[in-house]
């Protein structure tokens, strides 16, 4: 479904150039559940952003369902995100002024769906994540775990083919994290591909496959899950900056 080839991504600020991704190639098949691990600053979020069409890249190619997305206009990319991709963020990113129900409604609105259809999808998504009784609550009235489940409902309400999650459990305790992962697995089983960034090797182990990123490159696979805790101990250190 997703095919990345030789992708390079350089961040340029006034003084420094950061090579966030270098010659990175990776494929994600339909219905796959991939975990991405790696030390802090290694380029995981960058990778996810590029797959999710939130950011552009400097060279290489990216195909989504066989379509070359690097040429798409901003609006077409928005449409693709809206219809095929769901996002779950580490900090939930719920809109504070909107109720849980309205938050889930946001992506559906942009799709121009009929009101009845939207309502059906919103309720079923919220039922699925176990928030059926809290639809009218504001985000600030929920616990962190509930907020993240609301965010998951928002991500899946549009029936995406691909779900991208950047450290979805980063702000949660281990019990909550387990629940969220149960949910993701459940969603995956119904056919949605998931790419999840995580620092937790136990969680990464629950994915079908795990990819380890170091210095903007994919590291050899077998060592991925084992080395992760060590990497955690030395945050930022690996981020290589070149002039």
């Amino acid at each position: 479904m997703i095919e990345m080839r030789n992708i390079n991504k350089v961040y340029r600020s006034e003084l420094v150039e950061t090579r966030a991704l270098r010659e990175l190639s990776q494929q994600v098949g339909a219905g796959e559940f991939v975990a991405i691990t790696g030390p802090s600053g290694s380029g995981k979020t960058t990778l996810l952003n590029i797959v999710g069409l939130l950011e552009t890249f400097d060279s290489g190619s990216l195909h989504f369902d066989g379509e070359d997305v690097s040429r798409l206009s901003d609006d077409a990319r928005s449409r693709l995100r809206n219809e095929k991709i769901g996002f779950i963020f580490q900090s939930f990113n719920l809109i504070p002024d909107l109720s849980i129900y309205d938050n889930v409604d946001v992506p559906l609105c942009y799709r121009g769906m009929k009101a009845g259809e939207r309502h059906r999808r919103i309720t079923s998504a919220l039922e699925l994540v176990g928030l059926g009784s809290r639809m009218r609550h504001l985000p600030s009235q929920l616990s962190g775990g509930q907020q993240q489940r609301a965010a998951i409902a928002r991500a899946i309400a549009g029936d995406p083919k691909l779900l991208l999650a950047d450290e979805p459990t980063g702000n949660l305790d281990s019990v909550m994290a387990g629940q969220v992962l149960d949910l993701l697995q459940q969603i995956n089983q119904s056919g949605t591909a998931i790419v999840m960034v995580t620092h937790d090797p136990h969680l990464a182990a629950r994915a079908q496959r795990s990819v380890h990123v170091v210095d903007g490159q994919i590291a050899p696979e077998e060592s991925g899950t084992l080395r992760a805790p060590a990497a955690l101990a030395m945050p930022e250190a690996r981020a290589r900056e070149t002039r």
Partner: peptide, 16 residues
């Protein structure tokens, strides 16, 4: 800003 970014991530076009 963050909210706008989130909306964009969720598929809002610039026009939206």
């Amino acid at each position: 800003t963050k909210q706008i970014g989130t909306r964009r991530a969720l598929g809002a076009r610039r026009g939206d």
